[in-house]
């Protein structure tokens, strides 16, 4: 994980090796899937217990990287707010012919509102295209971590991980 430990974000190849990151075919086949960007073996497993469908395993140890079973995941997003590392996203790659949805754990106030627009930022913080907020969810069970959903062009949906409003 050289890029992660020297620059602070996962490189594309590092990312695609992770057991929590779904293959592109699985993303195309499902409406929406968790995208777990957890790349270091730290002692942590709230994502596993948060998933109501048992789609996430952290095994054999609590330090093992979380693995996603794409058949079981239905993209409910419960794990996004449960992850203390805010490292889980939700990607709906087939939202429309040209657009995709990306849900992001978000803890800055004021929360954005549906319809707000801004730049989609990639993992390095670089602006890579336009983003529109289409959903903002912050029920009590999320414990003050909001989940915001942005609409972006399909070809940047695997890169867009923040919105600069």
């Amino acid at each position: 994980m050289k890029n992660l430990i020297t620059a602070g974000f996962l490189g594309r190849e590092e990312l695609m090796r992770l057991p929590g990151v779904p293959a592109i075919e699985a993303l195309k086949a499902k409406k929406s899937l968790a995208f777990i960007e957890c790349g270091e073996e730290i002692p942590c497993d709230p994502c596993r217990s948060a998933c109501p469908r048992g789609a996430i395993t952290v095994s054999p140890d609590v330090t093992s990287l979380p693995a996603l079973n794409t058949d079981l995941c239905n993209g409910c997003g419960t794990c996004l707010a449960a992850c203390p590392g805010m490292a889980i996203f939700l990607v709906d790659i087939g939202y429309s012919e040209t657009e995709a949805l990306v849900s992001i754990p978000y803890e800055y106030l004021p929360l954005p509102e549906v319809g707000d627009t801004g730049n989609a930022l990639d993992r390095s913080g670089k602006a890579i295209g336009k983003a529109v907020i289409v959903k903002v969810k912050c029920p009590e069970s999320y414990d003050r971590t909001a989940i915001i959903t942005i609409k972006v062009l399909k070809d940047i949906s695997l890169e867009a991980r923040h919105i600069d409003i």
């Binding site: 602070g8 957890c38 270091e40 805010m86 930022l121 600069d164």
Partner: peptide, 12 residues
């Protein structure tokens, strides 16, 4: 930890 770093880098 990488996750703490990634929260910062993605905001620029």
């Amino acid at each position: 930890w990488g996750v703490h770093a990634a929260k910062l880098t993605r905001t620029g």
